[in-house]
Design a protein around this nucleic acid. Structure first.
Length: 554
RNA sequence: GCGCCUGUAGCUCAGUCGGAUAGAGCACUCGCCUUCUAAGCGAGUUGUCGCAGGUUCGAUUCCUGCCAGGCGCACCA
């Protein structure tokens, strides 16, 4: 993916090196050259403020420094003009035809356009949702289902090997309480206090009994376990089914129990002991997480011999690392932000680098508004609205897109009424509409038998301002994907697509693509059709990264 | 008390590495469909980037303090 920006950066670095050799500049060549696409079109296709940074060190006026670099840039065949503006900005305008050649790059790369290699060779474990198998997935899980899945796609696009993992919290008191609740429902008894309520418990009880009618005859001790285990399996399968319809697929469903049954917890404890961060007080076994920024030490084994949930966490982290993952990403809800320090401390206690091997992303809350009021009721779960209910209301595409388009560290409000609307207010339709519109143009072009292959593509034809702007946006895509992966922020892809859709609509309004009436067919028509096809490809690739459909017709 | 997150237009929000005149959508005003999807396009109006300092050529962005809001601080899971 060699882009114009890479080319320009390399040329600027070369120019600086030559200037240093001549003695015009002192110091070394900076590794990072600032190069941006200016908001203002008068500032060229690309602009760099490098001269302002170098001026200090060189003891020269920054405009003088810019002049030193100007000639070298002008030598590039791809560059049309170089201007020095303001305090010393270098504004670069590309040769139109060379910029239009991007269409060729995109159409040849197809779905590969936008893929990069920044994370090549890095094995990432991406853990998200990780709900208890004791009830339906609700709104909080839904945000992660959408964002986590999109992040997985974006990281893969950056070259990483990604494993999506769902940690099943299938151990502990909650499971027992769950079993008791389902059993009580089966016998029509009162749900134990602090037990699970909601219609789904009754449905589960019916399913469990239907599956195994003899369950009610079992002796009490066996019966409770049987209820718990059957209901667990049914509820887990229900979560899997719902996630599948939401287009969120996991590579690994990791059971907390398996950590204990497989000896991973003991193994983890051993490892931490060897690292020297385990101690005993009051009969309990502790991990000295305060050595690494936690505000208090944490108990691994209680005085009564029981293992804490925290012990599972440590064992799980160590297990992930031993499975070969370089980076373990945890996506947690806002109510778990207190876990950041202790999880980082686990990594440090295990002898890893907590700045690299472990990352914790915290997602803030989601609220749903409908008819001007907050929606809280859920028929199924009794309290909070479920993933399935949200999808029933607005569909998978709108739900996924809306959840992804905001940074996760800010609380968000989903307005159901807006999501049902098919207008500009609803960004998912805006982007999808652009895709469908282009698809229609290409269908018509094929029908008119206009030569449209790349062999008929003359980049020099594309010199309208709108075409130029569209090409500029298309060129940004690989950079946007790389940035989204690096910063773990898939919403950047969504925002980019909205901008691209807007730029396309502008082009469409001013640049007629197909011949009118009996107008003769020219190479401009062919060129524009190729530009449309390239835009279609980028919209499609972008939507694919979000797991949102790119419809051919709307 | 300690910790995490947030504060940008009337509303909902973008704005990685500090850059030129801080951007979208909605709302409001006005234009554009007898030929490619008007679910669209164009033009206009809207700001003490929470407050106060600091760092520097330059701060919405980085640092410190304060104010306001959300959330969390178990030998629960």
């Amino acid at each position: 993916m060699s882009s114009h920006s890479d080319l320009l950066v390399a040329q600027i670095q070369g120019a600086i090196a030559r200037a240093i050799e001549r003695g015009d500049l002192i110091g070394s060549v900076p590794a990072n050259i600032p190069l941006e696409r200016p908001k203002n079109r008068d500032h060229g296709d690309y602009a760099s403020s490098i001269a302002l940074q170098l001026a200090k060190l060189a003891g020269k006026n920054s405009r003088e420094v810019a002049e030193l670099l100007k000639k070298d840039l002008e030598e590039l065949p791809e560059v049309a003009t170089v201007e020095i503006a303001g305090p010393g900005f270098i504004n670069i305008t590309l040769n139109r035809a060379s910029q239009a050649d991007l269409v060729r790059t995109i159409l040849n790369a197809e779905s590969g356009y936008g893929q990069g290699s920044a994370l090549a060779g890095v094995k990432i474990n991406l853990e998200f949702i990780s709900a208890n198998p004791t009830g339906p997935l609700h709104l909080g899980h839904t945000r992660w289902a959408a964002v986590g899945d999109a992040l997985g796609r974006v990281l893969s696009a950056a070259g990483a090997t990604v494993t999506r993992e769902f940690y099943i919290n299938d151990r502990g008191n909650q499971m027992d309480l769950f079993g008791q609740s389902v059993q009580a429902a089966a016998f029509g008894e009162a749900i134990p206090k602090d037990g699970y309520k909601g219609e789904y418990i009754i449905d589960l009880a019916k399913s469990v009994v239907a599956q195994n009618p003899k369950i009610t005859d079992l002796p009490a001790s066996e019966r409770l376990i049987a209820f718990r285990e059957s209901a667990y399996q049914l509820q887990l399968r229900d979560q899997q089914r719902v996630l599948e319809t939401f287009r969120t697929n996991f590579d690994t469903w990791f059971s907390e129990r398996s950590l204990h049954d497989g000896g991973s917890v003991e193994h983890g404890l051993d490892k931490l002991r060897k690292q020297g961060h385990v101690f005993e007080v009051d009969g309990a076994t502790w991990l000295r997480t305060t050595d690494f920024g936690d505000d208090k030490d944490r108990v691994l084994v209680k005085a009564n011999g029981d293992l804490t949930y925290f012990s599972s966490d440590t064992a799980y982290y160590i297990n992930k690392r031993e499975r070969g993952f370089d980076i373990c990403i945890y996506m947690l809800g806002a109510d778990h932000h207190g876990y950041i320090h202790r999880l980082k401390a686990i990594s440090a206690c295990a002898g890893d680098n907590p700045e690299y091997n472990i990352e914790i992303l915290i997602g803030q809350l989601v609220k749903i508004m409908e008819g001007g009021e907050e929606v809280k009721l859920s028929k199924r779960a009794g309290t909070i609205i479920t993933l399935e209910e949200l999808v029933e209301k607005v569909g998978v595409d709108a739900a996924r897109y809306t959840l992804i388009r905001y940074p996760v560290d800010t609380p968000m409000v989903m307005d159901i009424d807006v999501l049902k609307r098919n207008t500009n207010e609803n960004p998912v339709y805006y982007v999808q509409y652009a895709h469908a519109r282009i698809a229609a143009v290409l269908r018509n072009a094929a029908e008119l038998k206009i030569p449209s292959g790349l062999e008929n593509f003359d980049p020099a034809q594309l010199n309208h301002d709108r075409e130029n702007k569209l090409l500029g946006s298309l060129a940004e895509f690989p950079r946007v994907v790389a940035g989204a992966a690096e910063l773990r922020e898939p919403h950047r892809v969504a925002r980019y697509l909205e901008e691209l859709a807007g730029v396309y609509h502008g082009f469409y309004a001013d640049c007629r693509v197909l011949p009118m009436g009996d107008e003769p067919i020219t190479s401009l028509h062919s060129a524009r059709i190729n530009l449309c096809a390239a835009t279609l490809q980028v919209l499609k690739n972008g939507l694919e990264l979000l797991g949102v459909n790119a419809p051919e017709r709307m």
